[in-house]
Simulated assay, not measured.
Amino acid sequence: MRLRNRWLRLGALLCTAVLVAAGCGEAAPEPGANEVDRQDDQLSLAQDEGEVVWYAGLELSLVDTIVAGFEKKTGISVDAIRLGGEEVATRLLQESDAEVHLADVIYTGNEGNFVDFKKRDLLAPYRSAELSHFDKAYYDEDLAYYVPYANRFWMVYNTNLVPESEAPKSYADLADPKWSGALAISHPGYSVGAAIVPFFWSQTPGLGLDLMDKIAANKPLINQSVHDSMAAVISGERKVAVVVNDAGFYTDGKGAPVEAVYPTEGVPTSGGGVGVAKQAPHPYAARELLDYILSREGQQIMADASRTVFRDDVTYPAGYVPPTSGDQNLYVVDPAEFAAKHDEIVTHFQKVFGV
């Protein structure tokens, strides 16, 4: 895996364009507008391209493991740009507006991003070689993107600091003054999960976005990611994390004095998304990486990290609680509704917390 400066990559792309125009080199033919199926010589063409640029809104440990497996299997180098999910979306839109095309594969934890990307015609439809292993609920009807996993969002408390009998049972409990200086919350402008939970509040009678104002009165620690909030609870810096995804609980919290709370109002759950950029500089390598992420090997990497994936041929670690177990009262977030509400959530958060 190589990490390179964005502007160096842009310069390289411009130089390549000049050389090809001058007849000093030849570029591999790009897939035609209607060629959504995998081509027989796709791997060979991808290896000729030699690299793929991945905008990865995913934990670094997962990115590293996926990259290592893909590079070993294909010999194609991955330039992985690790960002927060909303940072991926912002960068892609800014680069598109500037007509700068650097990304080959796009990955965020928010399917709503991909609803927006599709509307903006930023995705290249592709019928993945792994399509038959996925129910149609987990890919776009026009094959513009796929849903490789889902997150459930819980609260978490430190069991050394909070007895089970005193732990919050609901999101409404977080307004109790006894949690003053004891909460950790994540910023929805950076973390997708930190926006999913307030969206759920906005859709739930008796909660609403006004719950942010009540939580703000308890002076929570503001973090960028849900993993930072989890770390604050593990260390004892705070007693309760308002938003933690299930993967963070199982991985970051393994062996730590923490316990999950399924809020009585419900457990919001939301899918991530992955797709090929329409103007991908390395379109064949992009397709190969997408296929790998959706393959049994790629999905097993996610399952090993306690991600909820949608293939039926993977296994999960011991102790993993699947979505169908327990009294979780799942609330499945509609990606289009979430996308429409996202900016309002971020604006309200910034106004209430001043960040």
Rank of each mutant, 00 (worst) to 15 (best):
V88S: 09
A98W: 01
L92I: 14
L83E: 13
D104Q: 07
E166H: 02
I196L: 08
T74N: 06
E95S: 11
V147Y: 05
S165E: 13
D135F: 10
A80E: 08
D104A: 04
W154V: 11
D121Y: 00
A184S: 15
K73F: 00
E99L: 10
S128R: 05
D121K: 13
R127H: 05
I66K: 00
A184M: 13
L83R: 14
V147R: 15
P168E: 07
E130Y: 04
H101D: 07
D116S: 03
E111G: 08
A103Y: 02
V105K: 00
D79I: 02
D142P: 04
A195C: 07
S128T: 14
R120L: 10
V105A: 07
Y139L: 11
I81D: 15
E166N: 09
S191I: 05
L93M: 12
I81P: 08
V100D: 05
A144F: 03
A124M: 13
G69K: 11
T108L: 08
S128N: 10
A172K: 13
Y126M: 03
A68H: 14
L143A: 02
T159W: 00
D173L: 07
V197Y: 05
L83D: 09
F117C: 02
A184P: 10
S191Q: 10
V192W: 08
T74A: 03
S170G: 13
S170M: 08
I76H: 03
E71M: 02
D142Y: 01
S191P: 14
G181V: 05
